[in-house]
Amino acid sequence: MTGARPIGEDDLQAYADGRLEAARLETVKDYLSSNPGVAQRVEREMAQREALRARLAFKMQEPIPARLRVANLISARKRPALFKMKGVAAALAWLVLGGILGAAGGAWWSERSSSQMAVADSAITAHRLYVSERLHPVEVPGEQEAHLVQWLSRRVGKPLKAPDLNAQGYRLIGGRLLPSGSEAAALFMYENEGGNRLTLFARSSLEEKETAFRFEMQDGISAFSWIDNGLSYVVSARADRTQLLPIAEAIYHQFQTASGPVKGRL
């Protein structure tokens, strides 16, 4: 065995792909037989490679659609190709989600209306502006929660509440009133033990009464936004999507309970 090159990860990959030269193959086989742990790992990876192939094999069996025939593509060349990438973008939204939430199914997408986008943008801008403010991050401190909530509810025109995020490690430090387009918006700010701040932005929704959750990230700030019961919410934090999601869910559920038939609506 003098002068034999040591086994590398590349050897193991090429072994898994059946791409080793005969001489090298023997060396790798010898190595694997004396390293059962590695051998087992390689076995599993080969099985997963086969599983992936099997799972995707159906696509190879499909007859190709007429629109992909080269003759048809050439004769249709003058048509604009623009609209097509829309479909790709749409599917991408779903896919990005898969990565974010681990939801292999069930996620759906839709384009955001421009007003919703504006709400999320102003919420993120407010987050950026006030979270970094040391002296006056809030207008009314968390100690005066009842007054804060009453005041903001009146100005926003909907019954609000400051959700209790203690279970998530965040306590209310206060809130402020903000302009959002021509409407008034409320901003609640929370802080955790580590000094990380989170904001909840809420204003009345002009168009929709209810939408699904949507996620976006702008320069490191994650935001989940949704509309429920005619209120538009945006929760923002400098956090991971996976960290922010349970918080957004908790807020969503607290407002769901709060806006039940007991309390009534404005």
Partner: peptide
């Protein structure tokens, strides 16, 4: 796509 937002269905939350 990344410069725009992504919308998540409630089902996705439940599946998370």
């Amino acid at each position: 796509r990344k410069t725009h937002g992504v919308q998540v269905g409630v089902e996705a939350l439940e599946n998370s």
